[in-house]
Nucleic acid binder design. Structure first.
Lengths: 102, 102
DNA sequence: TTAAATATATAGGTTATCCTATATTTATGC
DNA sequence: GCATAAATATAGGATAACCTATATATTTAA
């Protein structure tokens, strides 16, 4: 599927991470798996961990070590960013979905 | 609005161009304006024209000069790519929309 | 205790997407 | 014709998002 794609479909990784964390707390591997379910390809460690590091440095998420895992959740600022980003996303791409099923 | 965004929302430009061209033929400025309506910021010339050049080089769109304008439309390959890309996009981000209004 | 498995971290490279700034082409108004 | 406006083109620079490969930490199994 991805091989057939001739236009670039990268992007919105940090947004998708914030979105998933707004539903429940997750650790890195879990996030990668959830993104993989949606995109068809699970992002590699070298993709997901730098993204988490960046979101953490911007204080949008916090991580709490639980044994082998680091469980991430949104900060208040992360929740607000997520809200604005969702509005933006829906305004930008809403009509792609509106057409589905037609 | 965009200034408040603390997570990167770039991406999917070529997909959005293909999507818009699947609805009607447009020239570059027109595409930029339509994208601007959706994203809140109209992409600059240095963004849109290289993207069109790239899609053209991949034979996903063709351009026909009409006076001052170059009117673009999808090639058969562009239509097929657009279909796969839309499926991918909806699978990847469908639940962002599913939650709206809840 | 040691090995293997799992999760995380980081270095280094590529590309699309964004920008600003400058140039060129084409049509239009005087 | 000549200037202006509008559309297109391109150079050059930044960054997020992807990758591979390697390393480290932590838990589990033998």
């Amino acid at each position: 599927m991805k091989g057939r794609m001739m236009c670039d479909m990268r992007g919105m990784l940090s947004f998708q991470i914030l979105f998933l964390l707004s539903k429940r707390h997750m650790h890195g591997e879990e996030l990668a798996t959830e993104i993989g379910k949606r995109r068809g390809d699970k992002p590699k460690a070298g993709t997901i961990y730098p993204a988490l590091k960046d979101l953490k440095s911007k204080k949008l998420i916090t991580g709490k070590r639980e044994g082998k895992l680091i469980v991430y959740s949104l900060t208040p600022s992360g929740r607000e960013t997520m809200k604005y980003a969702t509005d933006y996303f829906c305004r930008a791409f809403g009509d792609v979905f509106a057409l589905r099923g037609k």
